[in-house]
Amino acid sequence: MKVTMKKVARRAGVSSSTVSRVVSGHPNVREETSRKVKKIMDEMKYTPNMIAKSLVSKTTSSICILLPKQDEKCFSNLFFMELIRGIATQANLSGFDIFISLGANEKEEVEMVSRLLKGRRVDGVILFSSRKEDAVVDFLKINNYPFVLIGRSDKYNEILSVDNNNLKAAYDATNHLISMGHKRIGFVRGPSNAIFSCDRLEGYRKAIQDNGLERRPEWILGEEVMQDSGYHAMSFLMNLPKRPTAILVVDDLVAFGVIRGLNKLKYKVPDDLAIISFNNTTLTELSNPTISSIDIGIYQLGYTASQVLIKRIQNPSNETQHTNRFIIEHRLIVRESSIPKRLGV
């Protein structure tokens, strides 16, 4: 015999509307009542009719994660996987499902997001990319769709966003290399249209300027955030007539490629070139030598992005009650790659 919402309500001693609110994750249900109803639902093996629930509540309890364009290789980058883990953990706690979408270009991304939102297949979107003049951000903002940006917009101050202080993080990383005695410091940056990359470049330049050090344009390499980029960059950097003795690298995966390239060229880290990177993924402790890195709180970035978006979806009228911009603190993690062997770790 089919288990209905009414039967669950009768056994729990509550109204059908209370069961409905528990199913939809509505905040106005006492925690004790919610636990009791969920326990009875499990015992009775009750499965909510999600289509019917969506029609009644006008929500889907689903959010979309939009991955960066042309980044199908992102699943090999532990940064993205940890970010998704944070998002999925919080979404699950809130009773939300996630969709993962990937567009080949911005036009395709806009079409995909439009189809999902207008077709009421998702309630909101989490954007992984933070780009200059972003067409997807424009579309979501103009149409007043719920979304959160992991990063910051160069155009809108009022949109919901979760980010690090990337300028300060790069400033701190560069100053760490300076404290180790380095005066010639380079930077392997990310894509030029990525705002996080521009902010980190600005932080690096500020630290160099504040310490009165030499700045050379050939010491700044513009690369995509993938392992092979760091590998190929080294053949250029280490053959310069006057080369850096240390570099800041935009991502752990690139740093791993940098070390591989240096090994092939018979250079040693940190003796010939000291390195510090960003993200502090598990890769940094598996590398030889281990990699110094800025821990940006990847899991917390994802968890917070999911949390604030779902709150916005459930309580759209409270969108101006609190701040729209959430900053996750960073930490400097020092390992072998940036410490001269005479000092140890």
Rank of each mutant, 00 (worst) to 15 (best):
K2R: 15
V3C: 14
R11G: 08
S15F: 07
S15M: 05
S17W: 04
V23M: 02
S24R: 02
G25W: 05
G25Q: 11
R30L: 13
R35K: 15
R35Y: 14
K36C: 04
K39Q: 12
M44E: 01
Y46L: 06
T47G: 06
M50R: 14
M50Q: 13
M50L: 15
A52E: 06
K53I: 14
S57D: 12
T60A: 06
S61R: 15
S61A: 13
K69H: 10
K73I: 14
S76Y: 14
N77Y: 09
F79G: 01
E82M: 04
I87A: 05
A88I: 04
T89R: 09
A91S: 06
S94A: 12
S94C: 12
G95S: 12
D97F: 15
F99M: 10
S101I: 11
S101Q: 14
L102P: 11
N105G: 10
E108Y: 12
E111L: 10
M112E: 13
K118W: 14
G119I: 10
R121N: 13
S129N: 02
R131N: 05
V136K: 01
D138R: 10
I142E: 15
N144W: 13
Y145K: 00
V148Q: 04
G151A: 08
S153H: 03
Y156C: 05
N157A: 15
N157H: 14
E158Q: 09
E158K: 07
I159C: 05
L160K: 00
V162A: 03
D163R: 02
N164F: 00
Y171L: 10
I178P: 00
S179E: 02
M180D: 02
G181S: 00
S192Y: 13
N193I: 15
I195H: 01
S197N: 09
C198Q: 13
D199F: 06
L201H: 01
Y204H: 04
Y204S: 02
D210V: 04
G212C: 13
E214N: 09
G230T: 03
M234Q: 08
K242C: 12
T245F: 05
T245D: 09
D251I: 08
D251M: 08
K264Y: 10
K264T: 10
L265S: 05
V269G: 06
V269Q: 01
D271P: 01
A274M: 07
A274Y: 00
I276A: 01
N279A: 08
N280G: 03
T282H: 15
L283I: 13
L283P: 03
S287N: 11
N288H: 06
T290Y: 02
I291H: 00
I294W: 01
D295L: 08
D295V: 12
D295K: 02
G297V: 05
G297R: 03
L301F: 02
A305L: 03
L309N: 04
K311F: 07
P316A: 08
Q321I: 14
N324W: 00
I327N: 00
E329R: 03
H330G: 07
V334P: 00
S337E: 00
S338Y: 04
P340H: 10
R342M: 13
